[in-house]
């Protein structure tokens, strides 16, 4: 049952990858919440079809025709409707930065953006920074510099770094700290994150 509710991007079925396993856990949790009629922890309310409105969302260069409720945030639609789980729900009030995506190349909080407000704009998530099967340069720099511990904030950190470097290709340390100030890291990997952004700035073309 869980599998059918999973994202449109169906994974390989022989063997369960770590990612599919996590997806299944996530969906199972959601369904349990619905069944028990408990208040949902996040935005995962079932859609009331009568209230859906059409939306074309351009994400990572791909156009997606969707129907959304006006109250759905971009974060919710990315994760729950498009299966792009890179952007994370953290505080869901624009403080932690785990949900950061690029909108027209600029970092923004997808938890504070209504999906309908993204109409006509180009959205880039951490998945969109991949170069085929290889990590993008900023992602690679985070790996090289060991710029995370638990990794939960990392997609948002990577996206913020990408946005910073698009605007300021060679930032100084103060500019990096300022540019990355909208992303919290609970593990406190900040020094390594600054190094990763410096490294990314060097290898980025």
């Amino acid at each position: 049952m869980e599998e059918r509710r999973a994202e449109p991007h169906d994974g390989n079925t022989d063997g369960v990858s770590r990612r599919d396993f996590l997806r299944t856990i996530g969906v199972g949790t959601l369904e349990a919440a619905v069944l028990s009629a408990a208040p949902l922890p996040s935005e995962g309310a079932p859609a009331h079809t009568g209230d859906l409105v059409p939306l074309v969302l351009t994400v990572n260069g791909r156009r997606n025709a969707l129907e959304v409720e006006p109250r759905w945030t971009l974060l919710y639609v990315l994760r729950e409707k498009l299966g792009l789980t890179g952007a994370k729900p953290g505080c869901e009030r624009g403080e932690c930065g785990a949900c950061t995506v690029l909108i027209d190349g600029k970092p923004r909080y997808s938890c504070l953006t209504l999906a309908l407000e993204a109409d006509g704009h180009e959205i880039t998530t951490v998945e969109g920074l991949m170069q085929g099967e290889k990590l993008g340069q900023v992602q690679e720099a985070f790996v090289q510099e060991d710029a995370f511990q638990c990794g939960f904030c990392t997609p948002g950190q990577v996206i913020s770094a990408e946005g910073l470097l698009r605007k300021t290709p060679h930032p100084g340390v103060a500019e990096i700290r300022h540019g990355m100030s909208g992303n919290l890291c609970r593990c406190g990997a900040y020094d390594h994150i600054v190094k990763a952004v410096q490294h990314a700035s060097e290898i980025r073309k």
Partner: peptide, 9 residues
């Protein structure tokens, strides 16, 4: 004011 993400929005 606020953070880079919030200033962009």
């Amino acid at each position: 004011a606020a953070s880079p993400q919030l200033r962009n929005q």
